[in-house]
């Protein structure tokens, strides 16, 4: 896998299809797997891909980079990149997708297959200008998203309110979840707007709830289940569960799964006369 990846990247540089490549390397000093940006074919030999490559590199693509930028993509990364292109963060030509056959990545704390990968139904990136590895060997999910969401759905509204309040209680408003998210791409985040101050700066139940609800609603129909928000949280808050609940609703109501096709449309920009919501003229939802 590593050799094939390096050969392909070298080829991309040599045929001038890319000016830089975002990938993973094992840090020569610390031995940790970290993201790296390389600018020439000579540097391709440091690239790797294995189960330790947990980060979502689509987060690191910037519009002002020297393009086209090659990006090593897992399934979730590719879906996120797809959404960013749909939302005009940068044009499709700005990126060259290097899709790697991902067999799931590990939870760095336990070294087991991470939760998100256990339920991942799309391990190949939809954006695949180049494909590395054996697509047929990526394996199937062993769990469904519903298994994670059902527990919340079974609660009554009061129980849910308590559950989320407790879940968000350790929040310190550091906004690492926002920074880690490839789709938190607002020009100015609502937390940074202070006239009026929509979300108060100090941690307390009201402002914690305000932030986490807004964060989740902004990701309705957009979250690709890469789980980076949860992984980045220094307090270990399981805020991604809320995104999952909404993703489950969006799929159930609108049959929409985020970012699965290259060039997919954004659900919220579509009009469909068969929309299940009655106020759009569709049939009443049962």
């Amino acid at each position: 896998m590593n050799q094939a990846l390096r050969d392909e990247v070298r080829k991309l540089f040599e045929t001038e299809k890319v000016k830089s490549v975002l990938g993973y390397r094992q840090h020569p000093l610390t031995g940790e797997v970290t993201p790296v940006i390389i600018k020439s074919a000579d540097e391709a030999d440091q690239l790797i891909f294995d189960k330790r490559c947990v980060y979502n590199l689509s987060r690191a693509v910037l519009a002002d980079m020297d393009g086209p930028v090659g990006v090593v993509l897992k399934g979730c990364d590719g879906r996120a990149l797809n959404m960013r292109i749909t939302e005009n963060d940068f044009p499709r030509e700005h990126v060259v997708g290097i899709a790697v056959a991902c067999q799931g990545v590990v939870d760095t704390a336990t070294d087991d297959l991470s939760e998100r990968c256990q339920r991942c139904h799309m391990r190949m990136s939809p954006i695949a200008d180049v494909t590395i590895g054996d697509e047929s060997a990526v394996g199937k999910p062993t769990k469904t998203r519903a298994e994670f969401v059902d527990e919340i759905r079974a609660m009554n509204p009061k129980q849910r309110a308590t559950f989320w309040k407790d879940t968000f209680a350790p929040c310190t408003h550091c906004y690492a979840c926002r920074q880690a998210c490839p789709l938190c791409n607002c020009k100015v985040c609502i937390t940074d707007k202070n006239n009026p101050q929509w979300i108060e700066t100090s941690p307390k139940p009201s402002s914690n709830m305000m932030w986490h609800l807004i964060r989740a609603f902004h990701h309705a129909g957009r979250c690709v289940d890469c789980g980076e928000c949860e992984r980045a949280c220094p307090e270990g808050i399981k805020m991604h569960l809320l995104d999952l609940c909404i993703a489950e609703d969006v799929e159930e109501m609108f049959g929409f799964v985020t970012g699965v096709e290259d060039g997919a449309q954004w659900q919220f920009l579509l009009y469909d006369p068969n929309d299940p919501d009655s106020w759009l003229g569709g049939p009443e939802r049962g």
């Binding site: 975002l22 970290t34 993201p35 790296v36 940006i37 987060r59 690191a60 310190t172 550091c174 906004y175 690492a176 920074q179 880690a180 202070n194 101050q197 108060e200 700066t201 100090s202 980045a232 220094p234």
Partner: peptide, 28 residues
């Protein structure tokens, strides 16, 4: 610029740093 690919500016390093002391003042 080379080091930037390995940072997403999440701020955990500074917010949990024992020597960092920057603050802001807000009215609530």
């Amino acid at each position: 610029d080379e080091l930037q690919a390995g940072c997403m500016n999440c701020g955990a390093c500074t917010l949990y740093c024992p020597t960092c002391q920057c603050f802001t003042i807000v009215d609530e």
